[in-house]
Design a protein around this nucleic acid. Structure first.
Length: 941
RNA sequence: GCUGAAGUGGUGGAAUUGGUAGACACGUUGGACUUAAAAUCCAAUGGCCAUUAUGGCCGUGCGGGUUCAAGUCCCGCCUUCAGUACCA
């Protein structure tokens, strides 16, 4: 075999790896462990395009490298197989989502196998598999059975909370944990009915049922989380979203806000991603203040980050949805107010967001009382105040906040100045650092920091407010009105949710006729005939048996997409365990993910929820670590280069790119497979694909070719710019694909795919192959000859560089290093086993198939994966002497031939002794000479 | 608006701590082999000027600064991309 027949080699080794279980990780090993994980894919019907495997290739390179380095590597893969597309396909075709999902998974697996990844497939998990989602349901039950103690910043079993209620009521615990519910004594608690007790406990559980205002998407017939909405429309499909009140399961992620923030310091994640999570959590320090209402027993509570400006308050503003609006509005203003509230409620979220500039509001006629001066402060309603943040009410300080300022100007409300030496005639003054408070009684003359401290003390003393930390983070709605998701292990007795006993899990999805919501607006599970829970038999029974004594209705909602992906990384450690999510032994060994690769789009979804669940599981002792992932890398997206032909507006005439000059044109996507690397369109293929252009006139270039224009867009089927990895593997081989994807540019950067450049990497692999096959008649020729000094240097230079590059995830530059090495060794006609064997190991993480084949030809019976990584030997990098360039005023002046065994001082002395050197052009003498071995000598003046 | 990242040849991109800018690859041009094409190999390739070999000047988005020395550090701008957005 003298030619590089990549297809044969790849088939052979993929088969060998599968048969020998080469990449099976063992839970018991003397070696140190290393856990490399990819974000598992949703198996979509479109299959993989060349963009998808980028991260998998990078993680695979790292996994193989770590194996060479002597680690026991866990590198699993699975499928996030619950999801909306399969359900929508089911709605259209009536086919069960399980079936389409399984078909898609088969296709994915085939494509992944073709690329030669070193996944341990024996550990595969699928979120839609009952053996797996049993554990998702189990975690849900644990969350239900837990509450969060703010005082200790930790989750505890709900039984401990009940004990506290029985013994001392909830006054103390509410105060300590900053929970605001009705208070009761121990005696009262004990006299409550079971139902009432359950209702109270529900307000403390980490997952709870509550009527919440949710983002309802009528088109999708479901509720969406904040991170599933982009620009006011659904992320999937782009449908409008409206606010609606519904009874929903929620996750009390807000309990963990501070710990989620603190944990970021301990993990090695990209700074932009950490910043996104920090912003999302949105911690702000300030105070709550309670304003009494004149002639009314209610109080308006506000949150402010600027309590120091409290003497600048000239009005209060409530969100239109605020519960006090109705109660405080005076008779005179009632008409105006209801008119305003109706108008704002009609405006969709999207309009409200788009229209930030226009100011609207209405006076309620009521007045609040200033906590210190007792002044009457008018209470207004304005839609610039959001119901969902803080308390939904603000104390408006027009001199210190631009929005308050604009509102006051618009409605001609006074703007008292409380800042010393500041002109507020044009705009508000919001610079905390330069603030000196004036016209403010006991705060006069103080800066922001001192004034804040003083005013909080005063508020607390008068019991009208206190210092408070507020978070932007909202509790996560956990219910979805869908079929293709995890069913809740929940039935309802007397309207109160009850958990199904853990030993009767999983609760599996029932059959339904259609996957649409019911006519009455219930979720698809409302269509199931058999969806009731028999508490005696502990099994699902037909709905007509519901008697509310022993048989109860089951929850109709299913869980959201992120439920299954929050703890899956732990299931890989022990995927077939029937008793636990994973055994303690396995978890103690694998700890958590050492390296996680995936896209940055999961910053505020999966990655935040996962951290939340893991912290909870840690609190309750089910997990031994507090963070799921130690190091995370966001790979950049590979974009597509779409091709466009241009049609003359209103005519059946297509204009080649070079003939476009200012005509009215309509760009039309052309499939990129009809376009060659010089942007020439295959007109016949295009006509066949779009028969509507069969008779179109093609205005070509002068040479008769028809050219398209190119544009970089997201790679997608609908843009006809998808490049299929199978085709690339067929034509150039998986090794070429893998190396080329790495060579394309820095891993973390978004970059367009361009097949044209692939020949460079492909010819490198051919050269690499030829390095071993240049014997007589092209036979395999490696010998035991002593390597030349040059070859040794090439090898050790390569080891050093490649090792550094892999550790820094600069996979693109290490491919260049290989190219240089192979070129040099070819020039040197190197045949020495001492060089070529380690070189093979170096390349194997990038080009595993060809390396494995060569390794085999070199006479090894074991797979190359277990070979030890070559050790770099500095001695071989250094020659006996070297010509040193000497730099001088930044420009190279001359070169000096010096032996290399000199130390720095000796080299400096040698340079100083050289009479021409020791002077600058202006005659000054350098004070110091800096020697950088192997590179340059610097003279410092 | 806020936060973050980034601006280097025709193109993708290298450049370790401030130390020969443009590695490596694509593309382009020329050459070898071939009846021819493909494949392969060799050479040139930032710009401008000079050319008898040796050379010279400019050059990392723009304007300043620090330094013997700046793509890299500092100050002030411009542009692009991403995230987020009435968060009190």
């Amino acid at each position: 075999m003298s030619k590089y027949h990549f297809n044969d080699i790849e088939d052979k080794w993929q088969k060998y790896w599968a048969e020998n279980g080469t990449f099976h990780a063992n839970n018991k090993s003397e070696k140190p462990k290393f856990y490399v994980l990819d974000m598992f894919p949703y198996p979509s019907g479109a299959g993989l395009h060349v963009g998808h495997p980028l991260g998998y290739i990078a993680s695979d390179i790292y996994a193989r490298y770590k194996r060479h380095k002597g680690f026991n590597v866990l590198h699993p893969m699975g499928y996030d197989s619950f999801g909306l597309p399969a359900e929508q396909y089911a709605i259209q075709t009536g086919q069960h989502p399980r079936r389409t999902t399984e078909e898609n998974i088969k296709r994915y697996r085939k494509q992944l196998d073709k690329m030669g990844f070193s996944f341990d497939w024996s550990r595969e998990v699928r979120t839609s598999n009952p053996n797996y989602y049993k554990w998702t349901q189990w975690i849900f039950i644990q969350l239900f059975e837990s509450w969060y103690c703010k005082e200790h910043e930790k989750a505890y079993p709900i039984s401990e909370l009940i004990k506290i209620f029985v013994e001392e009521g909830n006054v103390a615990i509410n105060k300590a944990c900053q929970i605001e519910t009705e208070t009761f004594t121990a005696g009262e608690w004990n006299s409550f009915s079971e139902k009432r007790k359950e209702g109270i406990l529900l307000q403390y559980r980490l997952t709870y049922l509550a009527e919440t205002e949710v983002n309802w998407c009528p088109e999708l017939g479901t509720v969406l989380a904040n991170d599933e909405i982009v620009n006011g429309v659904s992320e999937r499909g782009g449908y409008p979203v409206v606010r609606k009140k519904m009874m929903q399961w929620s996750m009390r992620i807000t309990a963990y806000a501070q710990r989620l923030l603190d944990g970021l310091d301990k993990i090695d994640w990209p700074q932009p991603l950490k910043d996104t999570q920090t912003n999302w959590i949105g911690r702000s320090e300030g105070a709550t203040v309670r304003f009494e209402i004149d002639g009314h027993d209610g109080k308006i509570e506000v949150f402010t980050t600027r309590p120091d400006t409290i003497f600048g308050v000239s009005f209060m503003t409530l969100a239109p949805e605020h519960e006090l609006v109705d109660r405080v509005t005076t008779m005179e203003q009632r008409f105006e107010v209801s008119k305003y509230i109706e108008a704002t409620s009609k405006r969709s979220e999207r309009e409200r967001m788009a229209d930030v500039k226009s100011i609207s509001g209405v006076f309620t006629g009521a007045y609040a009382l200033h906590p210190f001066t007792g002044d009457r402060i008018p209470i207004w309603i304005g839609d610039y105040v959001l119901a969902g943040y803080g308390t939904g009410a603000v104390m408006s300080v027009p001199s210190g906040d631009q929005r308050d300022y604009d509102f006051a100007k618009h409605f001609e409300i006074p703007i008292p100045n409380i800042f010393e030496g500041v002109d507020i005639s044009e705009e508000a003054f919001a610079d905390k650092e330069k603030t000196i408070i004036t016209n403010s009684d006991f705060l006069n003359g103080l800066n922001y920091k001192d004034a804040t401290k003083r005013v909080i003390e005063a508020l607390e003393q008068k019991q009208v407010g206190e210092g408070k930390i507020n978070y932007r983070l909202r509790d996560a709605v956990f219910s979805r009105q869908r079929y293709w998701g995890e069913p809740f292990p929940v039935y309802y007795r007397d309207g109160m949710p009850q958990m199904i006993d853990v030993e009767h899990l999983p609760l599996t999805l029932p059959q339904v006729e259609k996957y649409l919501p019911t006519e009455t607006g219930e979720p698809p599970l409302g269509r199931a005939d058999e969806w009731a829970w028999d508490t005696k038999k502990n099994s699902v029974v037909p709905n007509h048996k519901i008697d509310h004594e022993t048989v109860f209705p089951l929850e109709l909602n299913t869980m959201p997409g992120w439920a299954g992906s929050s703890c899956y990384m732990f299931r890989y450690m022990d995927p077939n365990n029937e008793e636990e999510l994973a055994s303690k032994v396995a978890m103690r060994y694998w700890e958590n993910v050492d390296l996680y690769l995936g896209g940055s789009e999961h910053a505020t979804g999966h990655l935040l929820y996962s951290r939340f669940w893991v912290k909870f599981m840690f609190d309750r002792g089910y997990l031994l670590v507090e963070e799921p992932v130690k190091k995370l890398i966001n790979q950049g997206m590979i974009l597509g280069e779409s091709a466009f032909v241009h049609r003359l507006e209103g005519e059946n005439k297509l204009i080649s790119a070079g003939k476009i000059k200012g005509q009215d044109l309509q760009p039309i996507h052309a499939d990129v497979s009809f376009v060659n690397t010089s942007n020439e369109l295959d007109i016949e293929a295009f006509k066949k694909w779009r028969p509507d252009f069969e008779n179109a006139e093609f205005v070509t270039e002068d040479d008769g070719s028809f050219k398209v224009t190119r544009e970089v867009e997201k790679m997608s089927k609908s843009k006809y710019n998808v490049v299929n990895p199978d085709d690339i593997c067929e034509r150039y081989g998986a090794d070429t694909l893998r190396m080329y994807e790495m060579f394309l540019g820095p891993l973390e950067q978004a970059k367009p795919w361009n097949t044209a450049g692939i020949t460079g990497v492909h010819s490198f692999l051919k050269k690499f192959w030829k390095l071993y096959h240049s014997g007589k008649e092209g036979g395999f020729a490696v010998d035991d000859s002593k390597p030349s000094k040059g070859s040794l240097k090439t090898l050790h230079k390569t080891i050093k560089k490649v090792e550094e590059d892999i550790e820094a995830f600069s996979f693109n530059t290490s491919v260049s290093t290989f190219m240089i090495a192979v070129n040099e060794l070819t020039t040197q006609n190197c045949k020495s086993r001492e060089i070529l064997e380690p070189l093979t190991i170096l390349i194997s993480p990038y080009a595993p198939h060809v390396a494995e084949e060569i390794w085999n030809l070199l006479g090894h019976s074991e797979s190359i994966s277990t070979a030890p990584f070559p050790v770099y030997d500095q001695d071989h990098l250094v020659e006996s002497s070297k010509e040193y360039p000497v730099s001088f005023n930044g420009k190279m002046r001359f070169k000096l031939e010096l032996p290399l065994d000199l130390d720095k001082g000796e080299i400096e002395a040698a340079v100083m002794a050289h009479e021409k050197t020791a002077q600058y052009l202006d005659g000054r003498t350098p004070k110091k000479i800096i020697v950088v071995p192997g590179k340059i000598i610097n003279i410092v003046g």
